[in-house]
Design a protein around this nucleic acid. Sequence first.
DNA 1: GGTGGTAGGTTGCCAATGCAACGAAAATGG
DNA 2: CCATTTTCGTTGCATTGGCAACCTACCACC
Lengths: 227, 227
Amino acid sequence: MQRKWKNFSQSFEKCPMFNGISTDEIMDFLICSKAELKQYSKGEIIISQGEKITSIGILVEGKAEAMKIDPHGNAYLAAQISEGNIFADLLAAGEDRECPVTVIATKDSAACMIPWKSVLIRCEKNCHKHNIILENLIKAFSNKFFELFSRIDCLTARKVEDKVLTLLEKYRKDGEDKIKLPFDREGMANYLAIDRSALSRELSRMKDKGIIDYNKNEFVILKKVNI
Amino acid sequence: MQRKWKNFSQSFEKCPMFNGISTDEIMDFLICSKAELKQYSKGEIIISQGEKITSIGILVEGKAEAMKIDPHGNAYLAAQISEGNIFADLLAAGEDRECPVTVIATKDSAACMIPWKSVLIRCEKNCHKHNIILENLIKAFSNKFFELFSRIDCLTARKVEDKVLTLLEKYRKDGEDKIKLPFDREGMANYLAIDRSALSRELSRMKDKGIIDYNKNEFVILKKVNI
DNA sequence: GGTGGTAGGTTGCCAATGCAACGAAAATGG
DNA sequence: CCATTTTCGTTGCATTGGCAACCTACCACC
């Protein structure tokens, strides 16, 4: 039984949920919490939009994407899920909520599904690692929340220029001039909910005006517009 | 000691954090968790942008607003906090995170500040109500998360018409035609990050085109545009 | 080296929408 | 019940940005 989890120990170790937990303790927890292993072929649906989920998932192998269908029927990318990422966590932790996205495996994948109840309820052995895991999870919730929150800052700016500057500020590391974004242009445009060509145009304009400089996905803010 | 909390029992009772907990048990919890009462005059700052907070707050009296300063120095409203609302919860539950907003009392107010550590750590008495409170809080986290998530759906629509329709769908209750929004026009425009007059214009247009009907903040979707 | 594919810059066009200003209607306060 | 304030709709104007089409540079693969 424990064997199957061992194969994926690397994924578990990089999962923020298990920060500060030894590999052996992780294995103990997985057994104690009655986690299940599910496997998916490339293209297979892991969770459908509208479905109700009571287990949190950890992607232990492969890659997946959360797609959202808008009212016009267009599908667009809501999130990428890589090895070691947690998914469906806030969904399972909520009360009887429908999944707002469809999660699809983009490679052959495996996921570890952990019943939310067994995360929440202390196991009989009262293992104190259990507490740390819950605490880690809650921190992950907080991070996900503030990630959305800061995206909203970008989205509520009324002009492309302001959206870009807000985005750059968000990714600026203290003391560093270079800002490296984790997007290509199309990803950046999607994140900001604007047209790719309009973004390109505006970036050029901002470079001409001397507000920013950039090369591929590395940016520098030259001129503080305001504070 | 317990006296001071009694004055605010109504606020605690409507706080989702204490769902299913009796008033007496709430009082026990507040003492056990070393909660503190803080009072603020109208206009006083409760939390400053950039501050780090380790206690979650419950507004037990008055009213407050979370204001955000954008890069141009404009302040805008990020959230309203009424009696019985929890605030700074995801902030305190995160790790060492700076508050992204400034919280200001808009009336003379009182807040109960509960150290996050004492929510997370089981008290020595191992009171099982403690678990329910934590579970309630996590559900509240989930709700706040999905609230943001669905706002992003509205914000990422490229046209005002789509933003409006997405918003209406979000507030539509199953089986009811009338959709009542908790905004005035200006609030609605802010939520959707568009100009108020542009919203008014578009609403009129949509009424003319027979897509929706409305009266004040009550709306009806007449024509399904798509699915 | 050639070839096909992809990412990203450019541009023209025009509809969408931000902005400002105004007026009407409704709500509030005395 | 009147006066004041607030909310909401309307409109003209200038700007913005979505869309489509095209081009270039770069990369991978043969």
